[in-house]
């Protein structure tokens, strides 16, 4: 059960208050009509599914109802950074740490 700091409520809250809405930074193409079926299919379906830091979109469903982004490690489940939608994705923390 994760503990997630909501950037709007500015508190750590339990995972059960949130919903994960999938990978973040999947921008909707500006001119869908100009894309091939294949390119449009990539936007619809293709996701990175990395092992390690992953940028995810979460929503504070039972709380403030705001969407925000989470950089979460898919191995350790550590929540590395939370940041607002529209902000650039942070670099995954480098170097070794435990």
């Amino acid at each position: 059960m994760l503990l997630i700091p909501c950037p709007f409520c500015r508190e750590d809250r339990s995972e059960e208050e949130f919903s994960c809405a999938g990978e973040a930074h999947i921008a909707r193409p500006e001119k869908p009509a100009e894309l091939s079926d294949h390119e449009w299919g990539d936007y619809l379906f293709m996701r990175t599914n990395p092992r390690g830091p992953h940028r995810e979109l979460w929503v504070h469903t039972a709380g403030c109802r705001r969407y925000f982004n989470v950089l979460r490690d898919t191995v350790s489940y550590e929540v590395l950074v939370v940041y607002e939608v529209g902000q650039p994705p942070p670099d995954p923390p480098g170097g070794d740490e435990s």
């Binding site: 921008a27 469903t61 109802r65 705001r66």
Partner: peptide, 13 residues
């Protein structure tokens, strides 16, 4: 409702 909020908050703020 969540779907509408999502598009508003993430794509069309």
């Amino acid at each position: 409702f969540a779907w509408l909020e999502r598009w508003h908050q993430t794509e069309w703020p």
